[in-house]
Simulated assay, not measured.
Amino acid sequence: MTFAVRAMLCLALVLCSGTARAQATDPYDDRVTIFATGDPEMAAATEQALASLDEFLKLAEAPPPGASRFKLKVKVKDGNVTEHFWVVPFRRTETGFVGILSNQPAEVHNVVLGQNIEFTRDDISDWGYTRDGHQVGSFTVCVMFKKMSKEEADHLRTKFGFDC
């Protein structure tokens, strides 16, 4: 049986919004895109992210000039439901990682926006950061653009520096 996977897409800055999401620890708005478990494009994006995860983690520990907003996307399970969230900021621990959940959950009920969560490397599905105004990584976001209208995807690419 296939279960829907909720992939949280944090893109639009909430600078003028009066919603509760404007109080998030990460100044991104939530966009929910549903992918079936095993979606080939999402699986390929996750594989690409994980193949370069070690390089990203080294870079996050000693960021070069112009690099900031290092983030990890992690999966959270609640029974048979899985959602993916950006965690910003994050840090390594003896057993894995800890960081602040930066999206409002839509389907899982065992975490909340702004909560410190602990996770392991096995929970990571993507990574990203900003370098000189351009997004680096965020491979799953590029897949999500394909499910948006061209206008919305182009707007977000331009506003946040995505090159995909």
Rank of each mutant, 00 (worst) to 15 (best):
S52R: 15
V32C: 03
L57D: 10
G66R: 14
V111E: 02
K77C: 05
G114M: 04
W127Q: 06
F70A: 03
F97G: 12
Y129C: 05
V108Y: 03
T25K: 05
G99V: 07
L50G: 07
G79P: 01
T33F: 03
P65C: 14
E61G: 14
A44Y: 09
V108N: 02
V74Y: 02
F97W: 04
R69G: 14
V111I: 03
R92S: 06
A24K: 07
V32Q: 01
L59A: 15
F70H: 12
A45F: 08
P40T: 01
F85D: 00
R92Q: 04
P40E: 08
G128P: 00
P27H: 13
P64D: 13
D54H: 07
D54C: 08
L113E: 11
H109W: 11
V108C: 02
V98C: 12
I124H: 09
R31M: 05
P64A: 15
F97R: 06
K71G: 11
V74C: 04
T25H: 10
A67Y: 06
D123I: 12
Q48K: 14
D30W: 00
I100E: 03
P89H: 05
V111L: 02
V32T: 07
V81K: 00
A45Y: 03
V108S: 03
A36Q: 15
T37H: 06
A24E: 03
A24N: 06
G114H: 04
S125P: 15
K75H: 09
M42I: 11
L59C: 10
T25D: 10
P40L: 12
V76M: 00
L72M: 05
